[in-house]
Design a protein around this nucleic acid. Structure first.
Lengths: 153, 153
DNA sequence: TATTGTTATACTCTATAACTATA
DNA sequence: TATAGTTATAGAGTATAACAATA
């Protein structure tokens, strides 16, 4: 069978749009998938997902943060945030406390075993990031982060 | 409550790594999430996901492509490819045919209603891409795609 | 033996809707 | 009324394991 990569742009003339490879969103999805897989391999031992590490990290950076604000920072709705916080609480990595200033809010804090898990995770992230950034110059990394921020901000 | 965005780098000194915002993988995930959500809003009417559109598009570009090659191009394993192809087949958008040259393979083809759906999807993608690319110059888009390709290739 | 497709199964993320408690 | 949390539920993607058919 012929190499599929050599057959391109066949239907480009049929519509106002090029081949799949010309779609920016397509490349974002593929890049995300590649990072996602490498992340999961790196974190298989720690049994932590991207989302779980992000939440632990965020709570560590802002002790007492409310669930709604975790969701806001990580772009998750309330229900999605609940499932992740529940899982981390069941594993004993964080605890909920009713906010003193606003009774509707739950203030989140890391437990000591949560802090240990986060420390392990940060070391793991470091080598994961090294793998990811190895294909770019520091200037390119900076530019890439800046451009990606324009998408998610 | 103080603006959480103003509290930063609190634990940066505790480990060899900076705040969550300094992690490239974090920005890729957030950007992907933002694109994912906008995509789903744009495709709510067509009831098609990113993956489904990608598969339709790929089969259209390479009629007779085998499932294993679809998975290879879109970075999915065989089981994941199956679920998506099954869904598209159930909806009558594509059909399977045993490959004449290799009896192990299933050759995939769009049905006529699959082609109609893909045409609609391409129009929808066009406005979605316009939304996404609006924050970049053409040179930046090119650079971004090139950098993302370095990650997923 | 290796590859491809298939089935079964399970987990995570995401989202919607409805309900409760608080502001 | 609006906000925050909670619960129930469902769909989509991802992955592993085991099996059958074919190379």
């Amino acid at each position: 069978m012929a190499n599929p990569a050599l057959i391109r742009d066949k239907d480009a003339a049929d519509s106002g749009i090029g081949a799949l490879d010309s779609i920016l969103g397509f490349h974002i999805r593929l890049a995300h998938g590649a990072v996602y897989r490498h992340f999961n391999e790196a974190f298989a031992e720690l049994e932590l997902t991207q989302k779980q590490v992000s939440v632990l990290w965020l709570v560590s950076d802002r002790p007492g943060i409310a669930q709604i604000d975790v969701g806001g920072r990580l772009q998750m709705d309330r229900a999605t945030t609940m499932t992740i916080v529940n899982r981390l609480q069941e594993r004993g990595y964080l605890r909920r406390e009713r906010s003193a200033s606003d009774g509707r809010k739950q203030a989140l804090y890391l437990t000591s075993s949560g802090e240990t898990a986060l420390d392990d995770a940060k070391r793991c992230i470091e080598s994961h990031e090294t793998w990811l950034k190895s294909r770019f110059t520091p200037e390119e990394v900076e530019k890439l982060v800046e451009m990606l921020s324009r998408i998610h901000d």
